[in-house]
Amino acid sequence: MEHEFPFNLDSIHINGSVMTTWAIMLMLALVAWLSTRRLSLLPTPLQTLMESIVTIMDESILAVAPENGRRILPLIATLWIFLTVANLVSLIPTLHSPTRDLSVTSALAILVFLSVHWFGIKTQGIKKHLHHYITPSPILLPFHIISEFTRTLALAIRLFGNMMSLETAAMLVLLVAGFLAPIPILMLHIIEALVQAYIFGTLALIYLASAIQTQQHQPPLE
């Protein structure tokens, strides 16, 4: 899409990924507004579906972070929803998934990285948050720092690589095999898109949960 809709706004370069993201945002906001404008204790089918989605995500997050799950729910749930929709966008002809753009996956990975420290400091304080880098031994500090950057990089690269390769493979199969052959590939695309969204969100959840609950569940040192 970046080939079709790139334009410059002074120094800001808006490409197809950003445009698609905005479209997804608009669609999600519209769906959210439509599904929650008339909430009642006796739910409609749409409300039931939405409540089920939120309940599943809420229970999954609370299973990993029972004490502070509600604080990180908006971030993790939004990651799952956005990535699922963004990964599946490429099923629509002429559109490309934003997650096949390294800038997009990097932005999300950096956000997760920043969120880990933001929630860690906010929950435990900066001293306790930084203390876990030298736990159980200060020797592990470089490894912790390397781990912080590598897992962020892995987040970005994993999602970007999977989605890009998936689209490329689908395009190649379509070019080589003709009309009916891409159908299994499209099904694989759907599964892969869901799995990648789940993996990204779950990893982000684990990083955040480990940051905000590491000190809380450790037994006191004698």
Binding site: T21, L75, S103
Partner: peptide, 26 residues
């Protein structure tokens, strides 16, 4: 290719989306 503008815009977009969904959905 890494595009810094896209990187920044996507961060902002995602934060805005989090805010919107928090207000309208969750």
């Amino acid at each position: 290719e890494f595009d810094f503008s896209t990187f920044i815009l996507e961060m902002l977009n995602f934060l805005v989306l989090v805010w919107i969904l928090q207000r309208l959905f969750y």
